[in-house]
Amino acid sequence: MKALIACEYSRIVSDAFVAKGWDVTSCDILPSEKPGKHYQGDVFDIINDGYDLMIAFPPCTYLTVAANRHIPNNPDRWQKQVEALTFFYNLLNSNIKYIGIENPVGVVSTYIRKPDQIIHPYYFGDNIPKKTCLWLKNLPPLTYAMHDNLFETKTAVEPEYVYYNSKTTKSGKSKYSVLWKLGKGHGHERSKFHQGIATAMAEQWTEYILNNKN
């Protein structure tokens, strides 16, 4: 079976599917960080090359809730958001039977449709709290608890937060995901996809597709 992992240069998800026996091509405008089949360029150059599955991670720079705050009185940023939404829409509606698209909470829910699932990395064994939305086509939501040993996915672990003093809460404390202590200039680290979810995708969706082949 052939899989396209779009907008990925880390090959974290690609390698998880390779481990399950898939013929995987990753694609991004950046070169791959690891060895493997990788197309550097526009995903729509290769999207119709007969893939059975596509997992995509479209850039979220202009799609997040935070990005939306900068839209008023900024026509250039508004135009880039429209382009980002169009890119997302075209991925979701491409001619591939099984599709999963990941993005943070943002404007896709308003302008295209709500996600099929919202998860966190700590549901799958990584201690990071980070809302991760999945838009699915012909794929089931991911399961993050053991189900009769069908899957080897790690069960949930305790999330790690950074606490700070706050005058707006009753306790006097507020919290952020441990990711945000990295601060500005670390967008690459903060956007990195986590291994637990990648493994869950590969294990669970491979099993599902094999059990539902015509």
Rank of each mutant, 00 (worst) to 15 (best):
T155Q: 09
T155L: 05
A156K: 15
V157L: 01
V157N: 07
E158F: 01
E158P: 03
P159L: 00
P159H: 00
E160M: 06
Y161C: 06
V162Q: 05
V162I: 08
V162G: 11
V162F: 11
Y163V: 08
Y163P: 14
Y163M: 11
Y164A: 12
Y164H: 14
N165I: 06
K167H: 07
T169V: 12
T169L: 06
K170W: 07
K170P: 01
S171L: 03
S171Y: 00
S171E: 11
S171A: 12
S174P: 10
S174M: 05
K175C: 03
K175Y: 01
K175Q: 08
Y176K: 14
Y176Q: 15
Y176T: 09
S177H: 01
S177C: 07
V178M: 05
L179S: 03
W180L: 14
W180Q: 10
L182Y: 02
L182T: 11
G183C: 10
G183Q: 05
G183F: 05
K184C: 10
K184T: 08
H186Q: 12
H188T: 15
H188D: 15
E189I: 13
R190S: 06
R190K: 12
R190G: 09
K192D: 00
K192T: 10
F193D: 04
H194M: 07
H194C: 08
H194K: 13
Q195V: 04
G196K: 00
T199I: 02
T199Y: 02
A200R: 09
A202H: 07
A202S: 05
E203H: 09
E203A: 01
W205V: 00
W205C: 05
W205K: 04
W205T: 12
T206F: 02
T206N: 05
T206M: 04
T206D: 03
E207M: 12
Y208M: 11
I209D: 03
L210W: 05
L210A: 10
L210H: 07
N211A: 15
N211K: 15
N212H: 13
N212T: 14
K213E: 04
